[in-house]
Design a binder for these strands. Sequence first.
DNA 1: AATTCGCCCTGTCGGC
DNA 2: TGCCGACAGGGCGAAT
Length: 296
Amino acid sequence: MPELPEVETVRRRVEPGLLGRVVHEVRAGHPKVFETGSPEELTGLACIGSRRHGKYLLLDFAAPEGDAAPRTLVVHLGMTGQLTFAAPASIEDHRFRRLPSGYQKPLGVHAEDRHTHLVLAFRDGARLLFRDPRRFGRILVLPPEGEGACPRLARLGPDALGYPLTDFVKRFLKERGARRVKSVLLDQGFLAGIGNIYCDEACFTAGIPPSARADTLTKPRVARLAEAVAEALARGIENAGTTFRDFVHPDGSSGHNQEDLRVYARGGEPCLRCGTILVKSTVAQRGTVHCPGCQK
DNA sequence: AATTCGCCCTGTCGGC
DNA sequence: TGCCGACAGGGCGAAT
């Protein structure tokens, strides 16, 4: 489930291939994937840069000569979204799919299939593909002035990457309410980019149970939580994202942060720090793992 | 007003 | 072996 580190990894790795390339042809798949605007509007435009806000990837396009109106392609990967880039001469790998035994995948770009919902074919033959079997992902095409008016983006709080710890503490204390800690961290309006994996990991590092009521945390513990969130995200990016099943880099390769996780997906296994058996439960309607020994 | 619930989706996995 | 229910969960609108 692509969260901030996964999206940032995709952004960094897909941008070099996109810069300067001009969209020649657009193929769109399932209509429900497209929420606002149409990808056809990108035809003739060149990619001039990329941004990210929380889990949203924003690709900016402008006319090479400057006569057509610019557009921003907004991509949310949802649960199973994959954004891949095929260089002009690359060969499609029809074996591109998850292997039953683990996260090793053949290198290559997936062939267009029934789950491919967007293909941007560039003039030189390169292609950007969006594939999403479960279709929780969304694609929006916005004019520059449409960004502020887009409800999805407007609802987002500040991006979690590089967010000042003092601001985190201040706003957490002010906005936490009677919710559980996990509920606050997952709230994209509070902070944009944290999902289930990095939430559980940060709570473990901070020694806070995800189910604790947010309004019971003392200020020092909130400060620890802020640090833990920053640390979890930074490590996720260093490790190029977490690949359990579907997440892939634009070239089809995998992240390796899954080897560095302390609690997520480790329910029933011993805690790496104290040996206590990790407990799996449901908090804020999400599968949650924590260590009863380390998180009190 | 704040918080929780139900729904959208398909592939995978465990149990029988 | 094969079928089937449970599960994964981000975000949004509805319900409480």
